[in-house]
């Protein structure tokens, strides 16, 4: 007879196989989205040769990387059954901290550290509210969203900062083998996310909490600490996104992260993660966020007006999720 400590119960092989097949059948969205986006790419490349140019992809990959960082963090949050409405505000506060750093002539590393630390601290605050005080994530982060954006505005007096040193702007300018460094940061974070999700106990806890919060608690999983870590990690990634965003725009403002929060949630959902939690797919999330930016960029090159791009990318989310629901059949309804 074998003994497993409660946190390390191994599923038997058939169980594991079933779980894997369930996960595959449950996550249809990336397999809807990817061909759609590929078809779209072919069409866009046919209509406008610039679409496949190296410069276009360099310019495309940079904002993709910033949104990607927030999306990866959001993926962990949504996997626990939570949501982080404050992500955009955290990016804003972190960016403002860097602006204040420039104002006081801090060295570049100190500014970067300040942004990351601010992000992590804001995330940790969310983590305390949600992990220890057991507030519902949507409400807690709704409150902190207003709080953090107010903090960012108050610290900057609503002004925008400029005059960042070249050392910081390096993040935007530098390329390695033609690939923007910003995007390489995203690749590193993707790898980190895969390891965290699939090769650490924390990754298991995250999924377990999202599948069944109560069961995870009764199983003796460190629910509070795991949630705290999830939101802190999300805050840290928001701080990272703030560094990249500030470097790219060469300015910092309290409201500069505004669009990122909804984009991140949409990307995770487009990637096939159920909003109720219990499942996470790094591949899906990366597909989701890439789809948004590639389609937006393609529409731009096709000469579609900016506002229509915005409407169409939102429609993409609705179509993908709705289509996924239809394909998955009506079986769920009978539960």
């Amino acid at each position: 007879m074998s003994f497993y400590p409660p946190t390390l119960v191994q599923p038997s092989p058939p169980e594991r196989a079933r779980a894997a097949s369930l996960r595959f059948s449950g996550n249809t969205e990336p397999f809807i989205v990817m061909p759609l986006v590929l078809l779209f790419c072919i069409y866009a490349g046919y209509r406008n040769a610039d679409f496949w140019s190296g410069l276009n992809w360099q310019l495309l990959l940079q904002p993709l990387a910033e949104a990607g960082l927030v999306s990866i963090g959001m993926m962990f949050v949504i996997a626990t059954g939570g949501i982080d409405l404050s992500a955009g505000s955290i990016v804003g506060v972190a960016a403002v901290m860097m602006g204040i750093g420039t104002h006081h002539g801090w060295p570049v590393w100190a500014m970067e550290f300040a942004a990351l630390a601010t992000g992590a601290a804001c995330g940790a605050f969310n983590g305390i509210l949600i992990g220890w005080l057991r507030l519902s994530p949507i409400l807690a982060t709704l409150g902190t969203m207003i709080l953090f954006s107010g903090l960012g505005l108050a610290l900057s007096s609503g002004a925008s900062f400029a005059g960042f040193p070249d050392g910081l702007l390096w993040w935007n300018d530098a390329t390695l083998l033609g690939i923007p460094v910003e995007f390489l940061v995203f690749v590193v974070v993707i790898a980190l996310a895969v390891v965290l999700l699939h090769a650490t106990l924390w990754g298991r806890y995250v999924i377990a909490i999202g599948s069944n919060h109560e069961a995870a608690r009764y199983s003796g999983y460190p629910v509070r600490l795991s949630l705290f870590a999830v939101y802190s990690f999300q805050g840290l990634l928001c701080g990272g996104a703030a560094v990249l965003l500030t470097a790219r725009l060469a300015s910092a403002r309290a409201d500069m992260g505004q669009g990122l929060m909804l984009m991140a949630i949409a990307a995770v959902v487009l990637g096939g993660a159920p909003i109720a939690g219990g499942s996470a797919s790094v591949l899906g999330t990366v597909t989701g966020v890439s789809a948004f930016y590639i389609v937006q960029n393609g529409l731009l090159l096709l000469g579609v007006p900016a506002f229509v791009q915005y409407a169409l990318t939102s429609a993409l989310l609705l179509v993908a999720v709705g289509l996924g629901n239809l394909l998955r059949g009506r079986g769920e309804e009978e539960r």
């Binding site: 949507i138 409407a311 999720v321 629901n325």
Partner: peptide
């Protein structure tokens, strides 16, 4: 279509506004 409300209205918010 049984899209979760938060996702559905997030999408329509962008759609309407755009």
């Amino acid at each position: 279509l049984r899209i979760p409300p938060i996702v559905a209205t997030l999408g329509t918010a962008g759609l309407f506004r755009g």
